[in-house]
């Protein structure tokens, strides 16, 4: 295989093509609809919140991609955690994520969600969001501009269309013990209700 940036990009796209071909037509259609209609719960945890309004309004107009903001987690597909999280905020973020319907995805906006960013040695913000919730897409930067966020959405669209079994929500279900342990370590006794116990069963 050739070396260099463009062949590298090409190899990634080929990989996606091969994943797609394993899906049936209906699965592909479902994935297409999911990728082209993204309801976003924009959780303004930190300063990243300031970058989201321009993304949604006239100048950047992310509605072109089918991205719409919604108010409640029940309706949302994508949770944007925009920046640092204090434990107090994180509790609400976790609760909101758990109330979303599957399939659901998380975009971590800004460096703080990756490694704490400039809050690395803060006494009350978490460093790594992925310890507590499965992040599907990071958009790094401090702060990332709307263009970067749009790029993140486009990448996430590709990921959704690939319909991989490594999607965050599947991870969260299968490796819940891991996430729960981290959450309990952080919150101590004041933890949220357990996610597994949220539903009585698959019925009316």
């Amino acid at each position: 295989m050739d070396e260099g940036f463009i062949p590298y990009q090409q190899s990634l796209e080929d990989e996606e093509q091969s994943i797609k071909s394993t899906q049936s037509v209906i699965e592909q259609a479902i994935a297409w609809f999911r990728a082209h209609s993204m309801f976003v719960l924009a959780y303004g945890t930190g300063c990243g919140a300031i970058e989201m309004p321009p993304t949604f309004t006239s100048r950047y107009d992310i509605e072109r991609l089918g991205v719409v903001g919604v108010a409640t987690p029940r309706q949302a597909d994508i949770l944007i955690v925009s920046g640092y999280c204090s434990p107090k905020t994180l509790k609400r973020v976790i609760r909101s994520y758990e109330q979303m319907s599957e399939p659901k995805y998380i975009i971590g906006l800004g460096s703080c969600t990756i490694n704490g960013g400039m809050y690395w040695d803060s006494y009350n913000t978490i460093k790594k969001l992925d310890d507590f919730l499965p992040v599907d897409m990071y958009v790094n930067g401090c702060m990332p501009r709307p263009e970067a966020l749009i790029e993140g959405f486009v990448k996430l669209q590709e990921k959704i269309r690939a319909n991989s079994s490594e999607a965050g929500y599947i991870q969260y279900r299968t490796r819940y013990a891991h996430y729960r342990a981290n959450q309990e370590r952080l919150f101590g006794t004041q933890v949220q209700p357990r996610y597994e116990e949220n539903f009585a069963g698959m019925n009316l």
């Binding site: 479902i30 409640t72 987690p73 029940r74 509790k91 609400r92 973020v93 609760r95 909101s96 109330q99 319907s101 949220q192 209700p193 116990e197 949220n198 539903f199 009585a200 069963g201 698959m202 019925n203 009316l204």
Partner: peptide, 19 residues
């Protein structure tokens, strides 16, 4: 295609992230 799941606790409502 979507499966209905009934909440176990009637207090599990979306309440701005609060419990």
């Amino acid at each position: 295609h979507s499966k209905a799941k009934k909440v176990k606790d009637p207090l599990d409502i979306s309440y701005c992230g609060e419990v």
